[in-house]
Design a protein around this nucleic acid. Structure first.
Lengths: 247, 247
DNA sequence: GTTCTAAGGACGGACCATCACACCTTTACT
DNA sequence: AGTAAAGGTGTGATGGTCCGTCCTTAGAAC
């Protein structure tokens, strides 16, 4: 290192790859489809739910109504939404939902990156929740864990409750951005997770991890929460690693 | 809860706020300004650095040259870049950089959200690094900590090395997306951090936390890394909390 | 000193996403 | 029958982005 304080060339290279990486800016249309589609597939908007009226929703989303309609039409064509006209009508989440499409090759290729991102986001949220989650919120999550115990035989229902639990954890941090981050990460994982066989025993032990995680959070044990969450997520990762072609 | 499996209305409300939150899609121009500006302000692109040629850079960024030029012109007008023409010319990071502009009211209003996001991202990255960081990479980070010991009297230099350390941690996870997330979060924090007085004793103890953090990571101690990182970040948060008007 | 060349600088046309606004159609409630 | 609330449709304007082309500058090579 010649000049004092000047970064070495080697050190700079790695981070500059991130700085100069391709900029992919989603259009308002794309992001809306993404957001609503993810919320539907994750069960945040269960089948039969009525969306806010178009004129209200476009105001909430901060986009023009025509742009929102493009998104709604796209989600309608893919079978996730259906619209009825007239008074008392509206846009509703389809019931039943269309069968999940198989994960795209790109998603499969990026599975490790997706898992890494999930690990970072979820562990961070677990620690934050341990630091500050309100007991009442944790009570609700405990109840969810008990409810999940009855869903070990029905994977779609299990997965949906699982997502609600994880998103609930993000809500417990009180930071809306983190809720968004969690839903995005869960949406990205969903395609991968459906590839995995989920025998009830696995789901049972996974829910046990939920219990230990929530206990650690309730104790305010940040380190414990981080460890439990990391272990919990590692379970999925190991199974996926076995399924994917060795990269 | 009446219908089995159906989410209670109350449960849905919180997460739907995130689903229906305003969609803010950055244009390619805006994101480029953001990315390059952040990299410059963080010292990832130190003063005097020559950027790649426009024709190459727009290819790397995946945008049109005219769009890139808009961003370069904007950064030039704000004094972060200067361009020289002719052979051997190019676009260079200004030396010295323009004085940092005071943090915007919006940034100040969102300081808690920014801190939360940083906590989540950094703790997650610390845990991931503990799980898999290469020893050689950690050696480089240890060296950085030693270097920082000599910068306790010069806050700008300290801060720059501090950023390099944290970004280096993200690089140690081997996930480019996390490096991006870390630089974004650090960029958002920079404006807030400059508001704080940083006596050498505080910086010294902060660097001690770096040491303990890296030690935990080297031991592969995920829980310890999470705890150390959380404590490390809490230091800044507490000082900020004292400065900000009670929300 | 002339020529070559690699760089930034500027322009124009095409395309497309987005917007705002106005209007139509359906349907249930009053 | 009328009204209100919802989705459905169309149009023109605006602005971001892209692509290609040409100009200008100034160091390097000869």
């Amino acid at each position: 290192m010649s000049a004092a304080g000047a970064p070495s060339a080697l050190d700079a290279v790695a981070s500059l790859e991130a700085v100069f990486a391709p900029v992919e800016s989603l259009t308002a249309f794309e992001e809306t489809v993404e957001r609503l589609g993810t919320a539907i597939r994750l069960g945040l908007l269960p089948p039969g739910t009525r969306l806010p009226a178009e004129r209200e929703l476009c105001a909430r989303l901060g986009i023009a109504r025509s742009t929102l309609r493009q998104a709604l039409v796209a989600l309608g064509q893919s079978g996730h939404l259906r619209a009825t006209r007239g008074r008392g009508g509206g846009t509703f989440v389809s019931d039943p939902l269309p069968p999940a499409s198989p994960p795209s090759p790109e998603l499969l290729a990026a599975w490790r990156i997706t898992c890494d991102e999930r690990m970072a986001v979820e562990v961070g949220i677990a620690v934050l929740a341990a630091a500050r989650a309100a007991p009442e919120k944790l009570d609700a999550l405990d109840a969810l864990v008990l409810l999940i115990d009855d869903l070990l035989e029905d994977f779609p229902a299990y997965r949906q409750a699982d997502v609600r639990l994880h998103v609930g954890l993000a809500e417990a941090t009180g930071c809306a951005r983190l809720v968004t981050a969690m839903t995005e990460v869960q949406g990205a994982m969903t395609g991968l997770i459906t590839m995995i066989a989920h025998p009830p025993e696995v789901l049972d032990s996974s829910n046990d991890q939920h219990r230990r995680l929530l206990a650690a959070i309730r104790r305010g044990n940040e380190a414990g929460a981080a460890r439990e969450m990391a272990e919990h997520l590692r379970g999925t990762e190991h199974i996926l690693a076995g399924l994917m072609p060795p990269s």
